[in-house]
Design a protein around this nucleic acid. Structure first.
Lengths: 258, 258
DNA sequence: ACGGATTTGATCGATTTTGATTGAATATAA
DNA sequence: TTATATTCAATCAAAATCGATCAAATCCGT
């Protein structure tokens, strides 16, 4: 008896498209049609479905993963579609960490990259509100403490007033913070009020606050203020304008270019 | 005389489907029908049953383990073993939950099964110290609150004094608790002191405490006491000895046999 | 062996998905 | 810019799949 090769299920096919997209940034409708052995009309319908669910970006002739910087996609890349800058920034941050430090890891893809580098280390006490970071570090040889709080799905972090309970009862040596954007006038800002609240909390409980932000964050304002530049002791970035450099100098902020 | 190959029992077949699903992302009804040598109608009934028990997702033409495009779980159950008893106990617990309830989910595989059943529901406020439960419910339409605390790798839970900060500031309607063992004399007990501490904390902050424990837990002592039988309002199990039944009766504990 | 309960497979109309076709919209080249 | 070639969304009929129903087969306790 012959083995009949069944056509893939819709769900299976959509998963396939997403997997393929993770490997190459963009895919043509025609290529997908050949690869998956269905008509182009079907591929177009699949792409539309996936787009409506926010899983990819549609372009003429095919599809791409969402543009980087879109919060929805910050974490969808398992592989670490992490830019080179973010890796260098994380590596520079790693140098600041000493044995037996108690550190805080904020949410965001840059900090997550730092967590990856810490995976193979040991002996630190790591406090975090990021479930992605916790997930990475759970098998490591660090002491791991989670802040608790209301779960925010978009950033996969625990935020809000409830997280304050724990944060108020601890002090860390170094807090590694991320941000959506920062401006000269208004300092750091983010999209969610609860998240901003938690960021402010932890910054007040850290001996040293270190901001990790690539050049794309500078000059970009977001919705809610999450701290002023005065709160920072150190900033790590890949490149910076003269304006910001001058301001950091005035404020006595240690600037590290990675 | 040839050996007649008996058709598989329903339970056997359903287990088979789950095993096959773990190997490939998605399976077609037609493929399963051939593989297991039963009609497609039967496969559809099996898939519907498994779906109602929260063990798979149904898609047109077949079934998948998780919805397409959903990121993989951050924290997953390594063993993943879930006996039939635990499923029934979880299903019975589900019936106790009402719309808009605020509930607490403890760690443990039985409670995790309950979390699976809650995945497709919505509108609850769910507090948990279990990262596996949180990971399952991450994308669901509930309000999700994590307790925070020190991460205990073995149980993938947040425990210890730090978790008390949040627990003291909340009250839940129903706490669904697991345990390593319970005895007539010493009540519930578990292996880790921090875990026991957290269990006692939440039980004191819940209007109703519901213990989910299969028969293997009864009469088995563990290391640290994590609460007395008097703390319980309801116990759900699959079978129970007369001694325990009598004691529960004396204490006014509502016993549910699943 | 008997009878009730459960499970199975077949059937049917309803729903969903697919591929082809169309004219409109967009990209590319001249 | 205009002309040409792709790609697109909308539409429709065919195919696949679905849920509901019912009768036959199987299972189980008496």
């Amino acid at each position: 008896m012959a083995i009949i090769s069944h056509r893939k299920l819709t769900a299976e096919r959509e998963q396939c498209i997403l997997d393929l997209l993770k490997q190459s940034d963009a895919l043509a409708v025609s290529a997908l049609s050949e690869q998956l052995e269905v008509s182009e009309a079907t591929i177009r319908r699949d792409l539309q479905n996936l787009h409506e669910r926010g899983l990819l970006e549609r372009v003429h002739g095919g599809a791409t993963l969402k543009a980087v910087g879109q919060p929805e996609l910050l974490f969808s890349d398992k592989e670490g579609k992490c830019s080179d800058e973010k890796q260098r920034i994380a590596a520079a941050a790693l140098e600041l960490i000493q044995q037996h430090d108690t550190i805080y890891l904020d949410g965001g893809s840059t900090i997550l990259q730092l967590a990856r580098l810490l995976e193979s280390r040991s002996g630190l006490t790591i406090v975090t509100n990021s479930l992605m970071a916790a997930s990475l570090l759970m098998e490591s040889r660090h002491r791991l403490i989670l802040t608790g709080g209301e779960f925010r799905a978009l950033s996969r972090t625990m935020v809000g007033p409830l997280s304050a309970s724990i944060l108020q009862s601890i002090t860390v040596d170094k807090a590694f913070m991320g941000t959506i954007g920062l401006t000269l006038n208004d300092g750091m800002s983010t999209t969610d009020a609860n998240e901003a609240f938690t960021k402010k909390q932890i910054m007040s409980r850290s001996r040293q606050v270190i901001l990790l932000a690539d050049h794309s964050k500078f000059g970009v304002p977001s919705f809610v203020n999450s701290g002023s530049l005065e709160d920072l002791q150190t900033v790590i970035t890949d490149s910076i304008s003269d304006e910001f450099r001058k301001r950091f100098n005035e404020l006595g902020i240690h600037l590290i270019l990675a």
